[in-house]
């Protein structure tokens, strides 16, 4: 296992190809849950967890049930079922995480509240799984890409929520730009800063 390659995947997922600012995956929760730093952090952590878990489970399902269904003998190649299979896996994972937290960590469950079920429709989660398949990552690479992609999302939503808290308190902007548009402009400026990482590469 080449550690430098894993490091370069991690660096790419967190900074260079950040899920929010360069790949536009997961914009809805990014805009919706970034009004307060606390909830933004909770959301970021939950998404990171689900992305890591989904990468692992979907890799196994893709490899052993869809592409090489060796369990059924010489089974057909079911790769065309990827989208449907993955979204069902993610939906059940999220449901499972929700039940687990409710039973065992009720405080975190309370804090995340309605944001937990929304992770199912976060395109960063389905996106990371599909990108794993597209990039032909092996199991460890997939998990690393999933977790670090989630960390990139966490970094982005944390930065944005911190800026937005101040922005809402002290903002003086044209009336038409109030609310959502000015938040988009802010996100655009952070994305501009993240473009500075684009030359960064390891080895």
């Amino acid at each position: 296992m080449d550690v430098t390659q894993l490091f370069s995947i991690a660096l790419g997922a967190i900074l260079v190809n950040n899920f929010i600012f360069s790949q536009f995956l997961g914009i809805c929760p990014f805009m919706g849950v970034s009004k307060k730093v606390d909830t933004a952090l909770g959301m970021g952590l939950a998404v990171t967890f689900v992305m890591g878990l989904a990468s692992a489970v979907c890799w196994i399902i893709n490899e052993y049930l869809l592409v090489n269904p060796a369990i059924f003998g010489d089974g057909p190649n079911l790769a065309f079922m990827q989208t449907i299979a993955f979204i069902l896996v993610i939906a059940s994972l999220v449901q499972f995480v929700e039940m687990f937290l409710k039973k065992n960590v009720p405080s975190l469950y309370q804090a995340l509240g309605i944001y937990l079920p929304l992770i199912t429709t976060n395109c960063a989660v389905l996106g990371v799984v599909l990108l794993n398949v597209q990039n032909n990552y092996n199991f460890i690479e997939s998990v690393v890409y999933g977790i670090t992609g989630g960390l990139g999302f966490l970094l982005a939503i944390f930065l944005f929520a911190s800026v937005r808290e101040r922005l809402d308190a002290t903002m003086d902007c044209p009336k038409a730009f109030e609310g959502f548009p000015i938040a988009l402009v802010t996100a655009g400026l952070i994305a501009l800063a993240f473009m500075g990482f684009s030359g960064l590469s390891v080895f």
């Binding site: 600012f21 360069s22 536009f24 044209p174 009336k175 038409a176 730009f177 109030e178 609310g179 959502f180 548009p181 000015i182 988009l184 402009v185 996100a187 655009g188 400026l189 994305a191 501009l192 473009m195």
Partner: peptide
Amino acid sequence: GISLPVGGFLVLACLIAFMQWALA
């Protein structure tokens, strides 16, 4: 820059702002 991700955020912000202005 407009073709890069930044441009996506900025152009969409302007469109939504225009829409809010027109609806108001």
